[in-house]
Design a protein around this nucleic acid. Structure first.
Lengths: 193, 193
DNA sequence: CATGTTCTTGACCGATCGTTCAGAAACTGG
DNA sequence: CCAGTTTCTGAACGATCGGTCAAGAACATG
């Protein structure tokens, strides 16, 4: 069976995710990674392949941990409109949480790499599509309950909400100020009336 | 008076801007820059100082050329609401123009560097503030003309529109598809009714 | 044409990049 | 306790990074 691993894959992957989330892909060196992950270069390459594949694993991990928690608010039972409200409320909370990197790893990756790296574009696109689908379900639910005008295009609304979430992430990076973000969210939610 | 310069500063700066716009800051090497700018390393360092200062000059150039053209739509005489409509119409056109890099240099820089580099954060913040001010003026104009409900908070609306423009830029990087972007813009503009 | 100044050119710098690898260390099954 | 397997460790790889510099080329002035 050989020598046992001295670290848990998910633990060090979570640390790698935070490094990429903070510094982006290109500005993150393997030295940064091993220092923060607390493992050696060899272990990194044995476990994750190379820097690029580690980055992809980090995006997937982000999707599983961070995005999933946001999306869960949309699937909450009850009012679809309240669910969307909760989504953006949580998004603002997360965005100003000093314990986390600012912004969003998916948004950052889209801006930094999506037009140049196909692997990143695929992964980012999949997450955004998943978010759009979550919004779509919530919108349809709200329309069925009469909370949102049924005449409105749910697909367009879902895309708008997805785009709005991305915009919020960008704004949070430059203006990490709750008042600014809440101003924006107020108007986003007003759209649903 | 010495030997005359063999290139025009603005011409090579425009080329540098496109390189940063396409590849981002970190992924752009000085080799990339001199190759695309058509000048030698020495000339680059003599004229622009170093890579970082060239990047700042590129952001300023982007502000002067690209953003200014977008902002000009907001200052057009007549309806404030039409002006905002025109802004986003132009934004979509620019976003799907195959002759340009996808997305927006300011959005990309915000996502890649704003939380880590103060100089970038300052410049990006200044541009975003300028955009917000333009939206604010247009909203107030529209409110005075009765096109937008006067009870609504113009500052919040301006911030929302600024954030929406950032969101569009991010979406354009992953989904460079006119139909998607127009769906989003349709809802953004519906907010103003 | 000689002189002084500025710009261009291409070689070159040390540092850091992502990646590899040989050997030591730590485990399991026989 | 030995053999076999896997992981850990740290030195090392060539390539590329951002940045510098000396020498030559191209101008204005006298």
């Amino acid at each position: 069976m050989g020598r046992p691993r001295e670290f848990e894959r998910d633990v060090v992957l979570d640390r790698a995710m935070r490094v990429f989330w903070t510094r982006g892909y290109e500005a993150t060196s393997v030295q940064h990674l091993v220092a923060r992950m607390g493992i050696q270069r060899g272990s990194l390459y044995d476990t994750f392949g190379d820097k690029r594949r580690l980055f992809f694993a980090a995006i997937d991990h982000y999707d599983r941990v961070v995005t999933a928690k946001l999306l869960a608010t949309l699937e909450a039972p009850g009012s679809g409109r309240d669910a969307i409200r909760q989504f953006f409320r949580l998004k603002v909370d997360v965005s100003v949480d000093p314990g986390r990197p600012r912004g969003c790893l998916v948004t950052n990756s889209a801006a930094e790499l999506a037009s140049r790296d196909r692997g990143t574009a695929t992964r980012v696109g999949a997450v955004l599509t998943k978010i759009e689908a979550g919004f779509h379900r919530a919108v349809v639910r709200a329309q069925r309950a009469g909370e949102i005008d049924r005449a409105r295009n749910p697909r367009a609304l879902a895309r708008f909400l997805t785009s709005s979430a991305q915009g919020l992430s960008v704004m949070a990076k430059t203006f990490p100020d709750r008042a600014v973000l809440e101003d924006i969210v107020k108007v986003i939610l007003a759209v649903l009336e």
